[in-house]
Design a protein around this nucleic acid. Sequence first.
DNA 1: CGGTCATGTCAACGCATGGTGACTTATCGT
DNA 2: ACGATAAGTCACCATGCGTTGACATGACCG
Lengths: 206, 206
Amino acid sequence: MEVTVIPNHTCHGVFAALLCPGHRPRNAAATRTAILDAARERFAAESYDDVGMRDIARDVGVDAALISRYFGSKDDLFLAALDSCTDGSTLMSGDKADFGLRVANEIVFEPKTAEKLKGMAIMLRSIGSTKAAEIVQTTCSARFFNPLEEWISGPDAPVRARLLAGFIMGMSVSRELGGGGFNMDLADCEKMRDRLAPILQGLIDG
Amino acid sequence: MEVTVIPNHTCHGVFAALLCPGHRPRNAAATRTAILDAARERFAAESYDDVGMRDIARDVGVDAALISRYFGSKDDLFLAALDSCTDGSTLMSGDKADFGLRVANEIVFEPKTAEKLKGMAIMLRSIGSTKAAEIVQTTCSARFFNPLEEWISGPDAPVRARLLAGFIMGMSVSRELGGGGFNMDLADCEKMRDRLAPILQGLIDG
DNA sequence: CGGTCATGTCAACGCATGGTGACTTATCGT
DNA sequence: ACGATAAGTCACCATGCGTTGACATGACCG
């Protein structure tokens, strides 16, 4: 029996978007950034190995082959997604005097999908995968470790930077291990923040 | 053209092990533990997704099918490997007064394959994999978080335990991101230890 | 020595993945 | 209005995975 296959969208023209909801007008640049956005979101939520090209393609509403065309290999896409994140410098944009409190607040209270920490979320998700490890290590050094080390710029800056980075990442991992949250009530979260802030600040001050 | 396939080992008898190096006498219990050891080692070095049943089988010198026979699914093997690790209680076996220094020393100077931290290495490697996440979370709570929380047993024990666990794991992650080490000379490593120890100790003392 | 059962191997299945080239279709300049 | 070309889709490939059931074989018991 012959079945008539209905293509995804037969509508066209300038009103296509109105007549046919979900229709994406043909626009390479827009599609490219849509893919990049979806990839960033996926890689922040799942590990390199768990994210499939077809998953990202489905999120965007596009064929997986198009991703390969635009970004090359999966490695290239992963790197592009990581590069498209706001880097660690946003953590260092404010005043040094209240760095500890600012960061502690973000770690404890901001949802894990906070834009500022999305790059770190991606790195933590895929740090275990050997295929992504090299990219993660390189990016982390270039966009997080080194700027932090330069920014704090006191005695033993490398040591203090490594401790800071480790603590920040560790709290993210800890939250992840708790199943996406710290599983504590508000009062305990505040206590955690109040204990964490001076520790971080102490590493900043020297 | 017919080729004669030589089986792995045609030797037999009580002297087989002597006559035929690499020969493993048939012993279910010994083979089982050999598989478990190999799995533990693999899972500590690579993520859940990167470790293949055939890899472990090759390490042991056994067919992959045998692993399925002994342990069931890959999940079951992963859980068994994790359970076979010395748990976090070894960190708490000593005196509370020098916990900070002891742990800081282990974190900074012990090789990442240290037996005491192997369980944590496995968890960190596979925390990103959705297929292993649930097992990791459950095991981590049961064998690390909860004992630690109970052991420190002061005011705000949950908060302090989470911070401690986060810091310890974070330093492990940080070392991993550095490419398997902190990339610092001995003097800096000692400085790191000397800064880390009092922070950990402070969380123990309350 | 010979049978027997546990122990281990082999070949294959079904599935999912990343990637590729040929094809279709919408868009835009003329 | 129409053809050229960019934009997107489709079918497919090679590969690797975990797992299974049928088969081989070595160690032990009588």
